[in-house]
Design a protein around this nucleic acid. Sequence first.
DNA 1: AAAGCGTGGTG
DNA 2: TCACCAAGCTT
Length: 347
Amino acid sequence: MFSALVVGWFDQHGRKDLPWQKNTTPYRVWVSEIMLQQTQVATVIPYYQRFMKTFPSLKKLAHADIDQVLHLWTGLGYYARARNLHKTAVLIDTQFRGRFPTTVTELIDLPGIGQSTAGAIVSLSKGDWAPILDGNVKRVLARVHCIEGWYGHRKTADQLWALSHCYTPKMRTAAFNQAMMDLGATVCTRGKPNCTQCPLSAVCLAHQTQQETQFPQPKPKKTIPIKSVSMLVLRNSQQELLLEQRPPMGIWGGLWSFPEFKDHSALQAYCQQSPILKQNKVKLLAKLRHTFSHYHLEIEAWYLDTVKKPNKIMEDRQLTWYNPKQPSTLGLPSPIQKLIKKTTEEI
DNA sequence: AAAGCGTGGTG
DNA sequence: TCACCAAGCTT
């Protein structure tokens, strides 16, 4: 009954023309599911198109340079997704002889693939039975059954998984899963759910009691801290900018950024002790605030012209000259990309 | 369990 | 301007 309502709605109103809904190979579905983690469809589409054009097959991705993968991920965020995608491609290419695993059990052992992503890959690409539980499905199910609590809590998540497990039909699993996500994204939205268009309104407990927006219960809110950093924008006579590769772990892992100091005086001290930098004074290029999910970052960017490349700034960090006119294929954090643009326009 | 991990859109 | 949050996974 439940699934018939959902699948019936899908046949009439579901989305069937998204880029990853054509030629639904496990590889293509996998890439789309990773990009779609915590990221909306409209944001993903251009990234997905570029990615598939560059890496049309798992083999191509496995043989690619990680810098090129991160380059195509620039601006999309959660860069561990890109690193895991590449790592997994290499793993499948070498350990699985290029055969993409097609069971949930095998898939969840791979880096970056959890229960829901594994279920999506299996159902959407093979049509096999597997439940999913992404943000959309959580919202729909939490409303239909008035599930209390935030789904970051184990108990709440377990209840929702149990519901997804029960409702997911053996037949037309792919249509059902896709429909549940579409429903959450287009009808059962967070702020103003469009219950008149919903195939589940007759069986939805939240709707019957007019408590649609009471569910799901929001994440307990916390005030996030403010951190600050000073960045050194060094430019050589060919208008190239000095970038430093960030360590693999932590924020912006593996991406290229300007050399960082804890504040302006630490940056100043570095320049003073450097024979090739000490004659000139740094000038303020920009102050900007960048917000992550877990903290605000106040960035001061100071620029300086130099004739020579400093041999090192931080221990074990690669340095490279970046030419904005002929950009290299490497990953850049979003605010760094903005700062680079600013240098080409203003200095 | 709770925190780390991005970014752009929205009201 | 700012809080909130969207197709989660890892530690």
